[in-house]
Design a protein around this nucleic acid. Structure first.
Lengths: 228, 228
DNA sequence: CTTTGCGTGTGCGATAAATACACAATCTAG
DNA sequence: CTAGATTGTGTATTTATCGCACACGCAAAG
């Protein structure tokens, strides 16, 4: 296999369709056919047929005003593979977020990224930071990446911080993902070899991060036990 | 426009890709390349290229065991158009579900269907019925369809039951969607002309349905007010 | 060690599917 | 009514897809 410097082979039509789908899902007020054609840089009739196919799949819906918006069929796509851990984690995340008045999230490993499966903000009008579910950052940056690696069996190639995190039961970092933000993460054990996960707290206040370790570790263990 | 009896024109490649995407998202333990090829009835290499494109879009992820599973990018597809009403409704739905120990849901109009944007089951080990979010049924069957129509300005063509529902502020039906199930629904007002919605309770017990009307109507109004 | 089998990734010619154009139909505005 | 903007469809052209052939890596068997 000659190391391929080029991009992976794919299919143009599908890629265009997915691009259109994402754009429509993101648009708060829908997109018209011409918007989509322009966005994709293709003839209007191409967009028309792509939109037809997406509509047939119930992933988008054409409203009476001839604009396309995301359809409820998108909700069915939330992967069954992640449903179990999400369902187990959400109530715990809510409790912790409210107790600590901070944003907490559930992250899993996907390739070399940590991605947010769920993000829960504290109830009420407190100041707190947040970020979008589905967002991702590299595994080698931030507390979440350390905790996720620590949730897996030790590797000879792993960094020193991972070993420390595994020994401590949690990881804490500052400014590695976002400037001036503390991250505190604990691995979720027993999530299986194909599902490495952690729970993560993010805050701007040092004293919150340092005082939350036991609560976060306990929450991770509660989630683990709910997975049995 | 001559009434077209044939199917809408679309694009084959995109349709196959979406079919693969749905199958993978549904599979609890992922799919291998050959599974996908067989499922689509196409050559393995076609599936391979489709899966590449879906992976590039971060909608699926290829794990170390070479199986494809739904990726967290799917979460980003939840339509921005529905985010506002979902976020406004979810806490209210939780409260009502627990208070009444019944499954409650948020439904919106999509064409001639009512589709479930959110389904919340009561906490705890009580007996209750449920159904999947994203599922749909025709607008002209069940309490939800009546309530959704009642949330819109009156039409001359609308059924008598819709007028009654609008006058009462809620609708109640029995066995129209599922046998032996009571449905109780209240329109959510002020959701805009392109977003007709209702809140719906489903139960097997007549006394629960009949006693819940005021609570459901109040919940619908709480959601309305949270949309301002 | 070699052989066999299985699964993955890629190059390439044939062809079916996507593309872009032309035109019809519909609606709104003036 | 005309003019313009938008949507939908038939159709020739062409390009992206298709499906095969083959190379590669790995693991179990001989």
């Amino acid at each position: 296999m000659p190391a391929s410097p080029s991009r992976t082979v794919g299919s143009q039509t599908l890629a265009r369709g997915l691009e259109a789908l994402k754009a429509i899902a993101d648009a708060r007020d829908g997109l018209a056919i011409n918007d989509v054609g322009e966005l994709l840089g293709v003839h209007r009739t191409i967009a028309y047929r792509i939109l037809n196919t997406l509509s047939d799949a119930k992933l988008i819906h054409r409203s009476d005003d001839n604009r396309y918006r995301g359809a409820a069929g998108l909700l069915q796509l939330t992967s069954a593979a992640h449903d179990a851990i999400r369902a187990a984690a959400l109530p715990v995340l809510h409790d912790v977020a409210n107790d600590l008045a901070s944003t907490v999230s559930l992250l899993i490993r996907e390739g070399n990224d940590a991605v947010a499966l769920a993000v829960v903000e504290p109830r009420g009008p407190s100041y707190h930071v947040s970020f979008a579910q589905g967002s991702r950052h590299p595994l080698n940056r931030g507390a979440a990446g350390l905790a996720i690696q620590a949730s897996q069996p030790p590797l000879s190639s792993e960094a020193e911080e991972v070993r420390i995190a595994r020994a401590n039961g949690f990881a804490i970092t500052f400014g590695e993902v976002e400037p001036n933000m503390y991250g505190l993460a604990a691995p979720i054990k027993g999530s299986g070899p194909e599902l490495a996960a952690c729970i993560n707290l993010i805050t701007t206040r040092r004293e919150v991060a340092e005082g939350a370790a036991t609560a976060i570790v306990a929450a991770a263990e509660r989630i683990s036990s709910r997975l049995g």
